[in-house]
Amino acid sequence: MIEQEFAKTVAWLLRIQAILAALSGLGFAMIGGMGWALAALIGGAIGVFLTVLTALRVGLALGRDPKVMVRAFYRAMALKFVLAVIMFVIVAQWFAGYFLPVVTGYAATAVAYWLAMRKMANLPLSTSETE
């Protein structure tokens, strides 16, 4: 049951992230043309990719012993951070002219987490969800 809840939340999160990345791409297409739009979409794609990767790693440990869950969680977050740094270094080194739209695209995908948190805050914290 909790696996389904997690999968549902992640699917919702990814959908919102894709929409926000597309919106930022559209915004930058109007401001700076196709190059900027593509850069914003790449930033969004980085955010979506990192979310998928983290969700897969966290999801695999779901429902196990809390110690295992926390270990898997920290490992997933460390991997996410390292991959993000590598990707942003690549972007900064070779696509420096498009850095602002890339970071904005990524930041747009981070907004999805705020929305997800707001959505989760409205859900009841009951044990029936875990059954």
Binding site: I2, E5, G47, A84, Y106, A110, A116, M120, L125
Partner: peptide, 27 residues
């Protein structure tokens, strides 16, 4: 213990926010 799974889902969301801000700084 029965809430651990559900708390993990919430932790995942909060961690996403926590990570995002520092990743933007590092970027």
């Amino acid at each position: 213990p029965e809430l651990a799974g559900m708390l993990q889902v919430r932790m995942f969301i909060i961690a996403g926010l926590l990570d995002a801000l520092s990743i933007i700084g590092v970027a």
